[in-house]
């Protein structure tokens, strides 16, 4: 089983054991996937369109269930998790999507605050924490802007702020630079690196090989539903 050369006692955050996913209709999206991602790792999951990256993510988010094998995230076996517990699993995962997925009727502040409200955090705490996180991603002055008033890079920063607001142990980014300019992509990746530096596990799913080579310590390559390579790099480009 591929595993990064972190300390032997470093807790495993994401574990795939003999995972297979077959969609109705017989399309095999993933097969025989075995991997472990430990606390504090910065991992790129690389693959072409249709390679199985999205299914990999959907399994971690428990949007889909593995047809065979076991997926464990943050110590929870996702094949055994009850439907009503899925929201609580997701609160421990900060997710960033290619299309940002911001609620268009809410301001940047409200979009980030919403992620806190769903966990019943008091308003006083929200008013303290959200400006802090928006400041972290460099959007202190855009708190009152709606998504359609922000650039692609800024929208992705809001999404990142939303993912960070709970200080989750795992951040998952699905093609986070897919919809933004190359120079802004670097900024987003640098932000993810900074988040990783404080101990957060970061998993970036992308098809951009160059970006992976430039920033990653570990690249897992998926092709036709199988893990074909799991390489530990030299530590990527520093900040």
């Amino acid at each position: 089983m591929a595993k990064r050369a972190v300390g032997a006692d470093t807790p495993v955050m994401i574990q795939f054991s003999n995972v297979k996913k077959v969609y109705p209709g017989g399309n095999v999206a993933l097969q025989d996937v075995n991997l472990e991602i430990c606390r504090g790792e910065f991992v790129f999951v690389l693959g072409h369109s249709g390679a199985g990256k999205s299914t990999f993510l959907k399994l971690i988010l428990r949007e889909e269930v593995a047809s065979a094998g076991k997926v464990v995230v943050g110590g929870r076996d996702l094949s055994k998790i009850r439907r009503k517990d899925i929201p609580y699993l997701r609160r421990g995962l900060g997710v960033v999507f290619q299309d940002f997925r911001l609620i268009p009727t809410m301001t940047a502040f409200e979009n980030v605050a919403f992620a806190m409200r769903v966990t019943n955090i008091p308003e006083k705490e929200i008013k303290k924490r959200v400006p802090y996180v928006l400041n972290l991603v460099g959007l202190a002055g855009k708190a009152r802007s709606r998504p359609d008033e922000l650039s692609g890079g800024e929208q992705q920063r809001v999404a990142l702020a939303r993912a960070l607001v709970h200080s989750p142990p795992i951040i998952i980014a699905d093609e986070p630079t897919g919809n933004i300019d190359p120079e802004l992509s670097v900024e987003i990746m640098e932000l993810l690196r900074a988040i990783n530096m404080v101990g957060t596990t970061v998993v970036v799913v992308t098809h951009e090989h160059d970006l992976a080579q430039r920033f990653s310590e570990r690249i897992i390559t998926i092709d036709h539903g199988e893990v074909v390579a799991d390489d530990v790099q030299g530590g990527g480009e520093g900040l």
Binding site: L89, R91, V118, R162
Partner: peptide, 16 residues
Amino acid sequence: RKEISIMKYVGATNAF
């Protein structure tokens, strides 16, 4: 529906 799926991804319960 997109708004609803975003809410689900950030961990909102169905009741919420």
